[in-house]
Write a protein that binds this DNA or RNA. Structure first.
Lengths: 128, 128
DNA sequence: TTGTGTTACGTTATAATATACGATAACAGT
DNA sequence: ACTGTTATCGTATATTATAACGTAACACAA
């Protein structure tokens, strides 16, 4: 992992944190173009992949979007609650639930490696 | 829901069932072109959306692919175990787990509407 | 039957998302 | 400095998805 890559990763993470909510890869790209005018999609995707691998960023599979990890449990699989109205995402961790999930999947000998848990619905303020 | 749409939905479902595994929308499109040479992407996406809504087909959000529902509990949210090696997908239902998940998400007032639960890993034969 | 509103359907064009692959740069060991 | 190795880069293109709009089907009233 050379210096160039790390710099871009830091910038990508800063953008995601500044915005707070989910951003598509191309929205991140747009934001980074202000400082790196010639940056191209693969660079963004690589940075996002590295950040995701390190648990600093979560990928919202059901939205094709990315969000900065909001908690400090960077390596825990998260439960992501997505408000379909205002777009805010809330992150929860529940190790027990993850265990149960793994054991359900494992009933037939399946060996879990990565959990994707996303819940769509309405957040407290939008649902009221 | 007119007759035209129903026919295409039946054909899409037949293709998914015949193949058994996950197929991208464009793979379905390719298969259907044999019988409907002029069919276009939106038609496929609409049929897939209708089938998904009725629980006959599940969308694999983390793969951008679709698979025929393998169980008879068509309207239950499923837990989909995806083998990253051979691509087979196994479907489980676990209403209790879903409840727990909803209550974790609901701790802050979130109102769940749709659950996406996908587990990547290795199936029994590939993991051995 | 003919007209009219409503809904679903089809088609074109294009948008949005993602990656294969060859080119380039960095750096360690000589 | 030269060379091999590895990681990074960007071009070009593949893949996935939908907006927009015209057309066909059907229900129902006149």
């Amino acid at each position: 992992m050379g210096k160039r890559g790390e710099k871009i990763q830091a910038d990508v993470l800063a953008v995601l944190r500044r915005r707070g909510g989910p951003l598509s890869a191309y929205e991140v790209l747009g934001a980074l173009r202000e400082s790196h005018p010639k940056i191209a999609p693969p660079t963004i995707y690589r940075a996002l992949a590295a950040l995701t691998e390190r648990g600093r960023v979560h990928r919202l599979e059901s939205m094709n979007a990315f969000i900065a990890c909001q908690c400090d449990r960077h390596m825990q699989a998260s439960i992501l609650s997505i408000c379909d109205d205002c777009g805010t995402v809330e992150e929860s961790v529940a190790p027990d639930l993850l265990e149960d999930l793994s054991s359900v999947a494992g009933r037939s000998g399946f060996r879990p490696a990565r959990h994707v848990i996303e819940i769509h619905g309405l957040c407290a303020s939008c649902g009221a």
